[in-house]
Structures are given as C-alpha cells and as structure tokens.
C-alpha cells in the first residue's frame, strides 16, 4: 500500500475526471458547444507525452553518466509509452478538429509539428534496431534522444506560436485556460492532467519491469 498508493490515486483521478468531464456543466460557447469537453481528454494526452519524454531524457542522461543498462531500458520504455499517448492525443485532436475546423487534418503548424516530433521518436526506435551491439545501442540512442528533445520542444511549443495557427494557445490565439474555461472546468482539467500523467508513468514502469525480466532471462 505504501508503494502503490499513487496507482490508486491515478485511477480515482482519471475516473472522476471522466465522470465529471462528461456530466459536468460547461460554458455555452459558439462553434465549440459541447466539444469543449475534449480539453479534458486531448490536452492531458500531450502533457503526459511531454512528461514521459522528459523522463526518457533524464534516464538517458543517467545512462550516459553511469552506464547502467536498467536506465537505458527505462528510457526506451518511456519513449514507447510516450508514442502511445501521442497517438491518443493526435486521434482526440483530429476528432475535435473535424467538428470545429471542418477537417481532421488542416495544414496547421501545431499539427504538423507534433507529427514531425513523432517521426523523430520513431526514428529513435529505428536507430535502436539498426545497432546490434547492446552497449553501443544504448549509448548512441541515448545521445540521439537528448539531441532530439530540445528540437521536439521547438516544434511543438515555439514554432506554432510564431506562425499562424488555428490551434488554441498558438498563433496569437488564446488558450482555453485564458478565456473559455470557467471555474468549474479548471479543477476537472487539472485532475485529468495529473491522473493521466500518473497512468502514463504506471504503464511505463510495468513495461520497464517486463523488459527487466526478459533481459535477465536472455542474459542467463
């Protein structure tokens, strides 16, 4: 219980944010209408993805400093889970875009930026497969992971702010937080964010432990 309380907390937070997200009141706004509820699901996916990529970079730095294999496994599993959340974020986003903008994939810097950032992390996984020797693979992929992280940040957060973008929070648009979220929405939104980040970390640790066991079996 002392070790697992945050998993239960994650479940409670996500479950309550889903219930409150679908049933709770939302402000009545033109065009958006009920789709503003997507902010409870779409935005947390991206926050979780960024947190997981950040965890991955931290473990890559740790790997380079110490050379312990377990750190490398943690880094790659964080990226694997991050890509999963990225896919969920893209899908919930496309659903919302189809209703409010009229097309699932308008040519928009925020969307293209996130797609390209995903390509970067898929390239990281391909790079891992291209290297046979385990130590070399761990070291070189850790280097690429650290190298790619700031560029990913520029792609998702800085470039859309500079260009014209339809997406809320970029291209001179206000975020939902500034204008449209009322005081009921805010706590639900933060609950969802914390809950989903914890769920992401949970999935990562599960995958990491499976990976450790496999690794031990292979080295026997």
């Amino acid at each position: 219980m002392r070790k697992n309380w945050w998993k239960i907390l994650a479940l409670i937070l996500v479950a309550s944010s889903i219930v409150a997200g679908f049933l709770g009141p939302v402000p009545v706004l033109p065009i958006l209408h009920e789709t503003i509820r997507n902010v409870y699901f779409h935005v947390p996916m991206w926050f979780t993805m960024i947190s997981l990529y950040l965890i991955s970079v931290i473990y890559s730095v740790k790997y380079l400093n110490t050379g312990k294999r377990a750190y490398d496994l943690m880094a790659v599993e964080a990226v694997n889970t991050g890509i999963l959340f990225c896919a969920c974020g893209l899908m919930t986003g496309m659903l919302w875009a189809n209703i409010t903008w009229g097309a699932p994939w308008p040519n928009d810097p925020k969307l293209n930026g996130s797609a390209i950032a995903t390509l970067m992390y898929l390239a990281y996984l391909v790079l891992r497969n291209a290297l046979e020797e385990e130590q070399k693979r761990a070291k070189i992929s850790a280097i690429y992971n650290i190298f790619a992280f700031p560029i990913m940040f520029v792609l998702i957060y800085i470039l859309p702010k500079l260009n014209d973008s339809l997406h809320p929070g970029s291209g001179g648009n206000s975020t939902f937080g500034d204008l449209d979220m009322d005081n009921y929405m805010r706590p639900v939104f933060y609950t969802a964010v914390v809950g989903w980040i914890l769920i992401g970390v949970w999935i990562t640790t599960l995958r990491y432990r499976v990976r450790l066991i496999e690794d031990k079996k292979n080295s026997l």
Binding site: G113, K136, Y144, L159, N163
Partner: peptide, 30 residues
C-alpha cells in the same frame, strides 16, 4: 552531430536521412 551518430551506426545513409529530416524540419520552416 547527426553524421557523427550515423557514423557510429555504420554510416548507413538511410539512418542519416531518418535521423536528420525530423530534426532539420523546424529549421527549414523558419
């Protein structure tokens, strides 16, 4: 830097392309 990484991965030109294209795209846009 990417050439340094891909040199370690056996100077594979496909690796060079897939590693560098996503990284260069933000620069190219600007």
């Amino acid at each position: 830097m990417v050439a340094g990484i891909s040199a370690k991965a056996g100077n594979n030109s496909t690796i060079m392309a897939i590693l560098s294209f996503p990284v260069i795209i933000p620069l190219l846009i600007v």
